[in-house]
Design a protein around this nucleic acid. Sequence first.
DNA 1: AGATTTTTGATTTACGTACCTCAAAAATTG
DNA 2: CAATTTTTGAGGTACGTAAATCAAAAATCT
Lengths: 340, 340
Amino acid sequence: MRPTVHDIAAEAGVSLATVDRVLNARPGVRQQTVDKVAAAVERLGYVRDVSAANLAKGRVYPLMFVIPEGPNSFMRGLEAEIRAAKQRSPAERTSIRIETVPPFDAKAIVRILDAVDPAELNGVALVATDTAEVSAAVDRLTDKGVHVATLVSDLPGSRRIHYCGIDNLAAGRTAGGLIGRFCGGRTGKVLVVAGSMKLSDHMDRASGFAAVLTSEFPGLDIVGPVETNDDADKVMKSVAAALQADPEIIAIYNLGAGTRGLIEALTGLELRKLAVVAHEVTEHSRQALADGLFDAVINQDCGHEVRSAIRVLKARADGLIPLSAQERIRIDIFLKDNLP
Amino acid sequence: MRPTVHDIAAEAGVSLATVDRVLNARPGVRQQTVDKVAAAVERLGYVRDVSAANLAKGRVYPLMFVIPEGPNSFMRGLEAEIRAAKQRSPAERTSIRIETVPPFDAKAIVRILDAVDPAELNGVALVATDTAEVSAAVDRLTDKGVHVATLVSDLPGSRRIHYCGIDNLAAGRTAGGLIGRFCGGRTGKVLVVAGSMKLSDHMDRASGFAAVLTSEFPGLDIVGPVETNDDADKVMKSVAAALQADPEIIAIYNLGAGTRGLIEALTGLELRKLAVVAHEVTEHSRQALADGLFDAVINQDCGHEVRSAIRVLKARADGLIPLSAQERIRIDIFLKDNLP
DNA sequence: AGATTTTTGATTTACGTACCTCAAAAATTG
DNA sequence: CAATTTTTGAGGTACGTAAATCAAAAATCT
């Protein structure tokens, strides 16, 4: 049988209360005694029984998620994952609140963050627009003792405790590697479509993509990035116009949302076979892959991101530092053949 | 606060003992009373506190993993993941035993399976060679009441309870989709290198690959599959010979192990730029990606597979049926840019 | 109706940890 | 050395569920 606190007490020759003080870092124990207990823990290979500990603590972690509202499929998928986490709340001892704000609306985010009462919230996970005012609000919240994690898009300038999302520079490079290889040595131009350069994730993807193309595939030139504010209609028009204007475009990289617009633009023309890479697996992009309109979709698993955010915020609330290595979110590549 | 068994008892107007009988499917309760309790559970949204339940049960799940020994990097990675799970044993209430057998040795597997005492083992996870005798041994074990899950490679004919691994037909198709696109419309031949057609995973990959190539990329013809028994040296020689013999080969798909051999064969020649896809991220394949020798590597996360196997076997030991949707293992694609 | 079986209630103990109180012992200080 | 502070011990309760016992009640059968 695995050892218990009682075994540790006996092994160390101290009382149960002292073992408890040491294990939970309570004050009033001499260093010498701490060492004795630590040695006993080591010798017996004691591991705290998490089930029993959770039961005894009876603690709950009140958390808040702040995400953009609107029709963006990815964000709605994210919301679904948060709701799923909410369903699991009893088992995970969390209490989750969801707040939605208009997309790209920094002021709305600031308003919500500033309204947080640190007494009744342990942590906040936030899909952020990368502006100075949001960063400042995050820092204010941190000062109040509420830990903030960024979700999907980072706030590099802020004091957020953790970023739960993919490395977007690497994601851009990955897209570059795919498109470069898909073009198989041909020369031509690649149209890059973005949402907003106010989003740090879009910025990073664009840079990563450009870096790979210039260094590894010099035969391919970039057109854009075209900014569309993730508006499907605008994406559609921009892509159609660009293809019309420039017959040398042989590939498209859509690094933002508005995937529906891209699909519409591509559905029209049967003339050219383009290499197309987009982001995020949604109902639409899935269909586009199946139809052969898209060649590949780069994805981040928002379920992982939500679960990671919860783990990180819970750990921070307990004063622990999460192992960042374990919390890394992978960049997934999907063809139609390996769709989940 | 979340409801407890006491609340259910009060709500249903029955005693605590009766609630316990219903929740744990113990006999001696009228259907009518069962329904009353079920209704109360439904109304209050009761969810069993897993921590408390585990604590009360104090149960441990003795499990066994059977995997091939030898230098195969992927299998050693798998073993490392099993050892990691063993480290977590106290928290997960498992007791894990690892048995290794010579690769491709069906008799050794059978010997170990037949020696299992059902009284001291709850489940077995097994990397199987797909032969009739292994299937029969699995069925015998199942009859003794020990659930068996296959790991990495399936035993389609057997009564194994679950397969913890990727869909290898889809993996082969994915490889086909990648290589087809990487060749970007060119015509030529693709060399396919396999380990053993006695492994159902290798069989499936070869079929999936061939299916996609013939239907979607008619300009590409398959050479092989060459069988190498996953021996690096043999892979090296086969690939070198094939490239020498056939100048039309413009791509290679290595669907088995022995990746080192492939790397050696490719390192020699600087003449041709080949599209190369292999399986499993290991130290070697990672380096080959970085060096530009490989274009893509298809991977299965053996950590996921091990954890999934443990979840499934534990659930079965409790008489529960695991949600297969949740246990699906994804087919990961890695370029050098999205390596984890 | 009485006998028998089935179903239910009441109560208890256990799991391993957290957290609390109060008293006793030991160490430190003046 | 006494007075004070620090450290330790002893013991208890609580968390929510599992699992058991024994008695009481209800249903079913003859």
